[in-house]
Design a protein around this nucleic acid. Structure first.
Lengths: 148, 148
DNA sequence: GTGACTGCAAACGGTTTGCACCTCA
DNA sequence: TGAGGTGCAAACCGTTTGCAGTCAC
């Protein structure tokens, strides 16, 4: 899942983007994140090894990556932008008591819901994708979550 | 679904909130909305008949209503707060091009997904509810959305 | 009457913009 | 070398805050 710098450079070039140092490190930083970081968070992370990078550049770069389809914006309840480098369709399990957010991949479920919705007659809208938000409680405080 | 002013007053009082004129009209305006309006939108709507109301009051009132559990905040991809007076379990259709968020009730779908998930062996978590996020585009700019 | 609420205006904070300089292809 | 990217600082805009005046109970 984690890509090498060469792979990332490849990705950028094939999206017709110049593979600048800033884009490389920002994209790399986002790929390493399992959570859905804010711009500020990525800025702080990247600044450690790239002290001259500017916050505006991080904003612009992330917007560029989203436009290029390399990265997604996720919706959130705070007013800050959050990003996700995981392009695979996946669902989120919100563990309310432990406040964790776990990814849940399930191709079959995805397909089942899409098929169901396709049969409904939705007028005037074109469905692009569905994402399930599962609210749950973790039963044993310190145990790992096992899915499937 | 749309409540009378007396009902709304009742609601406010039973939540230990003073039933001020501003709260009444803001809550009423939100209850009438199907598309999860922003603060600005509600402000403009309410200002027509209440020209002296202030934007800050709309912000404070909506926060108060959320704290009291009368209203929900919905997550969105823009940076503005959006609200929902519908407390029933339901799914959201995010219309990406028009930036609207529309409710989608579907008991059958809800049940189908819950049944599917019940068959999976989730270790260590207890599923409480599922909510579907449907990303879509509106096909005709000024048309109403018709579902089912 | 009093504590809570409103309206106003200033402050705040994340995002965007404009522009001179720089750099990748 | 030139088109496009970066860094910086100012502008922007939705939200929050502080406070004097007002209102619901």
């Amino acid at each position: 899942m984690v890509k090498s710098l060469t792979d990332i450079k490849e990705k950028l070039l094939s999206a017709n983007l110049k593979a600048t140092h800033q884009r490389l490190v920002i994209y790399e930083a986002l790929l390493q994140e399992m959570t859905h970081p804010t711009v500020e968070y990525l800025f702080d992370k990247v600044k450690v090894n790239n002290p001259t990078i500017s916050l505006g550049t991080v904003h612009k770069t992330l917007d560029t990556l989203v436009d290029a389809g390399l990265v997604k914006r996720v919706s959130s309840t705070d007013q800050t932008k959050r990003f996700d480098a995981n392009l695979e369709k996946h669902n989120h399990i919100y563990l309310e008591n432990s406040k964790e957010i776990v990814d849940y991949h399930d191709e079959e479920l995805q397909q089942m819901v899409m098929d169901y919705l396709a049969k409904k007659k939705f007028k005037n809208i074109k469905i692009k994708e569905v994402q399930l938000q599962i609210n749950a409680d973790k039963l044993e405080a310190d145990s790992a979550i096992e899915i499937k």
